[in-house]
Write a protein that binds this DNA or RNA. Structure first.
Length: 131
DNA sequence: TCATTGACGGCAT
DNA sequence: CATGCCGCCAATG
């Protein structure tokens, strides 16, 4: 699988996340069959252009701890993500240390690998002969 | 080619 | 529940 296909699979799966649901980078990685690439899932998401259609609900992907990654002190990405989530009705709480957190027990979406369409054909023995 | 980095994960303290 | 540390793996300098 290329990096291009990897990004494609990530985007495809992220688009399957229902509204008002969130999942983790690691789970996305598992769903596309590469459980050790959690970091690259985030890497792929940052390449998203806001103009892509259909839109990719990147805001529904947070860390496995249920928190929105801070992305650095000077950046506002985390705050934007919070706004996007609250805009669609997801409850975002804030811990004492100022961490933005989402309750997975209520908003989590963690389907078993194989039960979602990754957009990539795995082990598809194309038996299309000459027709 | 080697060293560093990163929208991360998981376990130990 | 908060922190610290180590493991992961591709992209970058």
């Amino acid at each position: 699988m290329d990096s291009a296909e990897f990004h494609d699979a990530v985007y495809h799966v992220v688009r399957q996340i229902p509204a008002q649901k969130v999942t983790s980078y690691g789970h996305i990685a598992k769903l596309i069959g590469m459980p050790r690439h959690s970091r690259h899932v985030g890497q792929a998401l940052k390449f998203i252009s806001p103009a892509v259609q259909p839109p990719i609900p990147w805001q529904r992907v947070i860390s496995s701890a249920g928190t929105i990654s801070s992305r650095g002190p000077g950046t506002s990405g985390a705050e934007l993500q919070r706004q996007e989530l609250e805009a669609e009705g997801v409850e975002v709480t804030q811990t004492r240390g100022g961490e933005l957190k989402v309750d997975f027990g209520r908003w989590g979406w963690f389907p078993a690998p194989g039960t979602v369409d990754t957009g990539v054909q795995l082990a598809d023995h194309d038996d299309l002969q000459d027709t």
